[in-house]
């Protein structure tokens, strides 16, 4: 038993040292699941001024874990905005002043019950990890090793692009498309949760992020969903995908922004918020 205790204690010591080396937070780990839970854990308290809810597309925007203390990155790798929105409405993540909802992947995510991420974030271990950092999801030894090998630098300053709030254009020639039952359910989920968020005083912005191409139907689905939500809950729509020239951005693959471009997009969002607030 003494040997087991010593082995355990030595590991805790090494983990603490490594975590200190990472300034007590790691960014992207090798696991989508834990990277997302780690972002949720870091973002949970205190309330951020701006939070981004979406998929891995918005997950690349630097947040609190990268030194931007007023930004909570709630991107769910392999998920959609509904995961983070649900956790905010349930009080597991404190309500931000502004919530940016990524529209690109709104058509994904769960329609029945809760996603595994939402279930995990409501579990005891998530709360324990929030209180004891060494048991937190960003302190996983494999995540630290992966982050060290990846060495993805965070750009701390970004250039903002001039964007203006937009009206949603729904291409008329695509009217042949219809919502499926699942898509209708998903839209109702968003409507319910956004109603709760507005009731909590959260200001909402819905945005399309620069990312990969969509099929005709996905594009229609996204625009139609945005139009219905904006009609029901007055909120700003930012079409970052159209308004930021794609040739000014760099991607690590065909979908996800490179660090410098992600910081530029963040700067653009912040500038847009400042403009809205000044009106």
């Amino acid at each position: 038993m003494i040997g087991i205790g010593i082995g355990f204690a030595v590991c805790i010591g090494l983990q603490s040292l490594a975590y200190f080396g990472f300034n007590w937070k790691t960014g992207k780990g090798e696991s989508n699941y834990f990277s997302t839970l780690g972002r949720f854990q870091v973002a949970a308290h205190p309330a951020a001024r701006v939070a981004l809810a979406g998929s891995s597309i918005s997950g690349r925007i630097p947040g609190r874990e990268a030194g931007f203390h007023d930004i909570a990155n709630l991107g769910a790798d392999g998920g959609a905005a509904i995961d983070a929105i649900t956790l905010i409405t349930r009080g597991k993540i404190e309500t931000p002043e502004w919530l940016i909802i990524e529209a690109n992947t709104m058509h994904g995510g769960v329609t029945e019950g809760e996603s595994t991420l939402v279930k995990a974030a409501q579990g005891a271990w998530f709360s324990v990890g929030g209180k004891l950092p060494l048991l937190g999801h960003t302190a996983r030894p494999s995540a630290m090793l992966y982050a060290a090998l990846l060495r993805r630098p965070v750009a701390l300053t970004g250039e903002d692009f001039p964007v203006t709030p937009d009206r949603v254009g729904i291409p008329q020639n695509k009217n042949a498309f219809r919502f499926t039952d699942d898509e209708k359910k998903r839209l109702r989920q968003y409507e319910r949760e956004l109603g709760v968020l507005q009731g909590k005083g959260c200001k909402l912005i819905i945005a399309t992020f620069p990312a990969g191409d969509m099929t005709e139907r996905e594009d229609w689905l996204m625009r139609k969903s945005i139009a219905e939500l904006v009609h029901r809950y007055p909120m700003t729509y930012l079409d970052l995908k159209q308004q930021i020239p794609r040739d000014r951005l760099l991607f690590t693959d065909s979908v996800h922004l490179a660090p410098k471009s992600a910081t530029d997009v963040l700067a653009t969002i912040k500038a847009a918020i400042r403009r809205i607030e000044s009106k």
Partner: peptide, 18 residues
Amino acid sequence: EAVIYGVLLFLILTNSGP
């Protein structure tokens, strides 16, 4: 051997998968 079991216990608590 006991130390190795201590390391495994540490990994169970900190590095389990989904």
